[in-house]
Design a binder for these strands. Sequence first.
DNA 1: CACAAGGAGCCCC
DNA 2: GGGGCTCCTTGTG
Length: 323
Amino acid sequence: MGGPDEGVAESVQHPSLTILEGEDKPPHDAPCIPEGPLPVLPLCCFDMLLTEDVTWLLKGAEPHTPSAPVPSPSPAPEEPEQCPVIDSQGVPLAPGSSLPPALQGQEECSLEQVQTLVVGEVLKDIETACKLLNIPADPLEWSSGNVQKWVLWTEHLYRLPQVGGSFQELRGREICGLTEAEFRQRSPQSGDILHAHLDIWKSAACMKERCSPGDSKLTEGEELWAEADSSCSGQPIHLWQFLRELLLKPHSYGRCIRWLNQEKGIFKIEDSAHVARLWGLRKNRPAMNYDKLSRSIRQYYRKGIIRKPAVSQRLVYQFLHPV
DNA sequence: CACAAGGAGCCCC
DNA sequence: GGGGCTCCTTGTG
């Protein structure tokens, strides 16, 4: 069913725009940023971060065409967020008005600091996707199944038109070797975007490799993962864990699931179909839908993991052991 | 119509 | 056996 017109693709494109020129060396205390020039990343690839976290960045970083909307994975910018989105640290972010905690108190932030922050966020998001999809971070290591998962995921996350089996037979090494033109050839509608996103992943993998492997210091994101993620143990992820992971990444998934009261563990599924599809992707269950997902959630009632809150509302659930 | 609740059968690890 | 998927019925707003 091709889903009702979920305002496709055009909001994601700024393929020619780049930020991160990396002319200066990064600050020496940057946690995991390699020395030397940072990879030049297309701006469109940061859209997952831009919506809440760094809209302030763009404001200062003009000249941005005023008519061009800020790239966003959300389908239609027509509807503003009804509720303030809470970021991973629980700090309410009023779009365009507040600085990330790391930069609070600093009126002027240097380009390097911005780079460090943005790149760090990109790495965290890639890490999230890896864990949710259970695929290696380095695209070169992907099997054809991994490639397929990644394509589906990226399509889904950025509401791209579906490419079908255009990349089906390719393994990671092969898809990494494709030029943008070849991407377009295989998928005229979204090939360029997929190519740009793959570039991000390749750059991130490259950066990770260049990071000192002995550095065991966890980034914020990794700490969150350590708290939330038990999929690293090699065991199959449970639904409640998956939901919690989505909830802990509000800048990526805040539109489909969000906390109503994190202290009490109360959350709301904003887009039931979307969450179900994400779960289906994660579990390789293409037929997953909210009906089945909610049935699984209801199994948790008996087990004391999730319940309906005292005041029952549609699509609102509560973890019995809040995060 | 979408969601909620729960029974039941099935599969996989 | 546990966890989850699937299909089902019934009820509600």
